[in-house]
Design a protein around this nucleic acid. Structure first.
Length: 970
RNA sequence: GCAGGGAUGGCGGAGCUUGGUCAAACGCGCAAGGCUUAGGACCUUGUGCCUUAGGGCUACGGGAGUUCAAAUCUCCCUCCCUGCACCA
């Protein structure tokens, strides 16, 4: 069993001593390979290896191809997650303690995490160790993090420039908000990490019949306004009269409090629910007076606390009205009007089709055959209620199900049946009505959270929507900017290529993006220093920093010196180096060194990432480069790899299937892990980490290890067919794999370099191949090709085979085109095929009566005469029977035999695939050499002969690519 | 809703960009044989259906089409997955 751990640590030491991963400009072409920098609030697990391993493999491959390739790493500390962890530690969050303990972190260390800076440093340390353990070819001299002062200077410069270019704008924006902590609430700040989903909605104004005030009704479905019968309020809630703009509104006190975060709203006085119940409201469409009634389901802290009642289409409203009626409450005349029809499907299904399947036989009514009951749909709310066996006394959750069903189906298949938008699809009608009513001043827009369940801040307060004004945005909606990005996209290389279209889609849709935040670690926002720069926005051009920060550090340049003029010089806004030196106090020599370095490294860049960053970071990365830098620094290529699943499931803490990086490395070996995660699926496909796949890698590695150990003891001799065959396979492999690697077609590349190689070696040996020179050449070249992905293992094998150089500095092998032989490979295929044919023929013919009780004494393999191969090749190319028979190349052949041979292809001549002419003499020779092997495989005595010399009756059946077989029974 | 991606054998998953060499790589599972006291270890063979000589038939979500030829190209349908912003 190979001891990966000791091999790995052994070579890592050697590499470190040799400083093989320190890269500086030289006369080769420079390439900068970067992978998205990790966020340091959790240790890595083996899933995180994929992107970094892919980038490392790419960097190593390019180095072997002769480029000078820099692969640096930095750490992301800005934003809120680190603060959130610190807060959870201070709150003794049990879940968090357990999670961190799973990664093997001592409780004493967890306690210290009350301090955010401790967290950042602690995990930075762990991550760096992990990456070193993984054996990445990272130049660690260039490490930095995103809160260090010099870095902040770059970010400040970035925002000043964006502002100068008019790409930063100010405006208002809805956000999730905690009224207790007075903070913006994002996914990280909520209980169970729920994303607060905000949707713009509409609140319709219903004028009080006797005053100038309005009832304000929030609604998801303004299109049902044509069926309004009344308003509902909660008779037990507190209501207020509040001024929004110039007008007075009735709404629940709780609702008013919430809305005050969205609008200029002043509460004037409270008003009793009883008083409101005595009022009449005016339907804004008809002008009719409608009653205000108590609704059992109305919540004071949702929407406005006033509901417009549409009993015909809303189950809650229907139930409320019917309950009031039954209880003798004076509801007045309520007319149910159906204003939306469901368009039947092709097979005639109408109501209830959305849950026909999912409910299964749910109702058990015997009608479940096609899921349809014949149902009276004149009151849709009632119809849906009865579809799920509910009635007006149903529990709220039953009413809720009915509500969701009707909402969904009418949104899907609804057609307006009444009103000015009659005939229009419900969705379109809704949008038109929203617009129209807002324009006429009959409604105003409000924001609501659309989450199914209420969202709570970690502090326990219910999250609401706040509209923040004076919010700064980066204006990714800027048309000119977009156009430039779109144009540049066309000259970029995106792997996998099909993501190109995805990027275009994102560029097309991306719009304003908040650039600052009230809290978190990071760089103060230059135009509002009490806020910090939003943490995705501060990491769009950080890759440039790798090229010069180590120079600044080495020369002790202080952050204060990094004035805008310095960056202006680097990014070519000015060219007067002495003026810059004077302005900043940095010596010209240092400035020049920085400039030379960025010019060397940054003109050819390759960026690696996982797909979740496509719609945000990667797109913003392109945008910012295009806006800020000279064109030669614009992104050249982006490589996106899929995620890592574990035994078929997403790796996550809730699944409990996380394997921390360090312990994973110890348990499985870093090289096999790297290999599995990078090569076992196409680039864009999620890979599946599982032990059995890993075992496949171990097995083959053992085989290669064993072979490498034997190679120098093997004897060499004259080359035979099977040696040429192995050479052909090797050289074809190098050629194909190299092309695949260049296109980041990693899986195909390594299938050839690894899996195929092992089975070819095995076949070679099984066939009797034993030529030391051939095997050593084969082994050395495939080991070199394995070096980018399993560097430690490759290094070990390389030295086992007697080499003294470091494989990580070796060149990628070149194919010898002359050794690629279609002929040798075809002959080998024919030999394999012939063995199959013999076995099958013996099996079938043994059942023939005339062979009963007999045994096979001998098998003759009869190779076709050369003219057949000539004729077949010609025919497959020309598809011309007459022409082939008449061809001068075949002039010496007996016309009768020739035409008999050729004419058997007559009926399907057009379907023949063009095939090269087989060398029948070589085939016969190779079969002769393989006689012993075929005998061993079939356990039959074998003879090989040529058609012309054969007396067998079956000889004429010999085909150019398929020798005839005669089985002799006795 | 908007955008993008996908549907292949008992399973995972190639192949589809450049239609033919595809009953479909590779792996798992399963079966038989070898080895063996034994085996979850290893090796070989087999694994859609039919077949008394290397053959035939049916297949790649459903339907239609283009073509001598389609898993591969075109159109329609059904179903599934992912992302949608202040969050790294």
């Amino acid at each position: 069993m190979i001891d990966y751990n000791s091999i790995e640590s052994k070579w890592q030491k050697v590499w470190d001593n040799e400083k093989v991963y320190e890269f500086d400009p030289d006369d080769r072409e420079g390439i900068l390979v970067t992978a998205a920098l990790p966020y340091v609030n959790m240790p890595q697990h083996i899933g995180h290896l994929r992107t970094y391993s892919t980038a490392d493999m790419n960097a190593r491959f390019l180095r072997m191809r002769g480029y000078n390739v820099l692969y640096p790493m930095a750490f992301h500390k800005t934003g809120t997650p680190i603060l959130a962890i610190a807060k959870r530690v201070r709150n003794n969050d049990k879940e968090l303690f357990e999670e961190l303990a799973d990664y093997g972190i001592e409780e004493s260390d967890i306690r210290k995490m009350a301090d955010p800076m401790f967290i950042a440093n602690f995990f930075t340390d762990i991550m760096e160790k992990g990456m070193r353990r993984a054996g990445y070819s990272i130049d660690w001299r260039r490490k930095f993090d995103t809160i260090q002062p010099r870095f902040s200077k770059l970010v400040e410069w970035q925002f000043l420039k964006l502002k100068e270019k008019g790409l930063i704008v100010q405006g208002e924006h809805p956000v999730g908000w905690c009224t207790n902590e007075n903070n913006v609430v994002g996914q990280h700040d909520t209980r169970h990490d729920v994303q607060p989903r905000i949707e713009e909605n509409i609140a319709i104004k219903f004028k009080d019949a006797d005053s100038n005030a309005y009832f304000l009704c929030a609604t998801y479905r303004p299109e049902t306004i044509y069926a309004v019968t009344n308003l509902f309020i909660n008779k037990d809630a507190e209501y207020v009269v509040a001024k929004i703009g110039e007008e007075e509104y009735y709404l629940a006190k709780d609702a008013a409090l919430m809305l005050s975060n969205q609008k200029k709203l002043e509460v004037e006085r409270s008003i009793a629910a009883d008083e409101l119940l005595k009022k009449k409201a005016l339907d804004p469409i008809t002008g009719n007076e409608i009653p205000v009634l108590p609704g059992f389901f109305v919540k004071s802290d949702f929407g406005t606390g006033v509901v417009m009642s549409v009993p015909s289409h809303a189950p809650f409203d229907y139930a409320a009205i019917e309950r009031l009626k039954r209880d003798g409450y004076p509801v007045g005349e309520i007319r149910y009007r159906k204003v939306i029809d469901i368009e039947p499907s092709k097979d005639g299904k109408t109501l209830g089709r959305s849950f026909a399947e999912e409910e299964g036989s749910g109702t058990g009514d015997g009608h479940s055959g096609n899921g349809q009951k014949s149902i009276d749909d004149s009151i849709p709310a009632l119809a849906y209620l009865s579809l799920i066996d509910g009635n007006i006394d149903a529990e709220d959750d039953v009413l809720d199900r009915a509500t969701k069903a009707i909402y969904k189906e009418e949104a899907h298949w609804g057609i307006m049946a009444e009103g000015p938008y009659k005939g229009l699809r419900e969705q379109e009608a809704r949008e038109k009505i929203k617009k129209e009513m807002s324009a006429k001043g009959q409604a105003m827009s409000i924001y609501l959270l659309t989450n199914e369940e209420p969202v709570y801040c970690r502090c326990g307060t219910k999250v609401i929507v706040k509209v923040v004004s004076d919010q700064w945005f980066i204006d990714y909606g800027n048309e000119k900017w977009k156009a430039e990005v779109m144009k540049h996209l066309g000259s970029m290389k995106i792997y996998p290529q099909k993501l190109d279209e995805t990027f275009r889609g994102v560029v097309d849709w991306i719009d304003l993006r908040a650039a600052e935040r009230a809290q978190g670690l990071g760089t103060p926002f230059p135009f509002n220093p009490s806020h910090i720069i939003e943490s995705l926005s501060d990491s769009t051009i950080y890759m440039t920093f790798y090229t010069f920060d180590h120079i600044l550090a080495a020369n002790n340049v202080q952050p204060e010196s990094l004035k805008p003029s310095f960056f202006d010089y680097l990014f070519e806004y000015n060219k007067d180096i002495s003026a810059v030196s004077k302005d900043t106090g940095i010596s010209e020599e240092v400035i020049k060194k920085c400039k030379d370095s960025i010019d060397y490294w940054y003109t050819s860049t390759r960026r690696h990432s996982a797909p979740d960053l496509v719609p945000n970071h990667l797109t913003m990365y392109i945008f910012n480069h295009v806006a800020l830098f000279p064109e030669k620094f614009w992104p050249k290529s982006i490589i996106v790899n899929g995620f890592v699943n574990s035994e078929g499931q997403k790796m996550s803490k809730s699944m409990g299937n996380i394997v921390p990086l360090i312990s994973g490395a110890e348990k499985y070996g870093v090289d096999p892990l790297r290999f599995l995660e990078v090569t076992s699926a196409d680039l864009d496909t999620d890979i599946n980490f599982n032990i059995s796949a890993l075992e496949g890698v171990y097995e083959r590695n053992e085989y290669l290890y064993k072979t490498a150990g034997e190679v120098n003891a093997m004897e060499s001799g004259e080359l035979t067919h099977i040696d040429y065959w192995l050479y052909s396979k090797l050289n074809r492999k190098i050629k194909d794999a190299t092309a695949y690697m260049k296109n980041m077609n990693i899986r195909n590349a390594y299938t050839r370099m690894f899996y195929d190689s092992v089975s070819e070696l095995q076949w070679y040996k099984r066939r009797g191949g034993k030529n030391g020179i051939v095997v050593k050449d084969f082994m050395e070249k495939i080991v070199k090709m394995l070096a980018p992905i399993m560097p430690h293992f490759a290094e070990e094998l390389w030295h086992m085979m007697g080499n003294n150089t470091l494989i990580v500095r070796e060149k990628w092998p070149e194919e010898d085109e002359g050794m690629i032989s279609d002929k040798e490979e075809a002959i080998e295929e024919i030999i394999k095929g012939t063995i199959e044919d013999i076995k099958k023929s013996v099996e079938l013919s043994s059942k023939m009566d005339l062979n009963a009780g007999k045994k096979v004494s001998k098998v003759k393999i009869i190779v076709a005469e050369q003219w057949k191969a000539t004729a077949y090749a010609l025919l497959s190319k020309t598809k011309d029977i007459g022409g082939t028979i008449g061809s001068s190349a075949l002039s010496g052949i007996d016309k009768e035999r020739l035409s008999k041979f050729v004419s058997q292809f007559a009926k399907n001549v057009r379907t023949l695939v063009e095939t090269a002419e087989m060398d029948e003499t070589a085939l016969e020779k190779s079969l002769e050499e393989a006689k012993g092997f075929i005998n061993g495989e079939t356990m039959l005595s074998i003879e090989v002969e040529e058609e012309g010399k054969s007396k067998s009756a079956r000889a004429s059946r010999a085909m150019p690519y398929k020798p005839a077989i005669e089985i002799i029974w006795s």
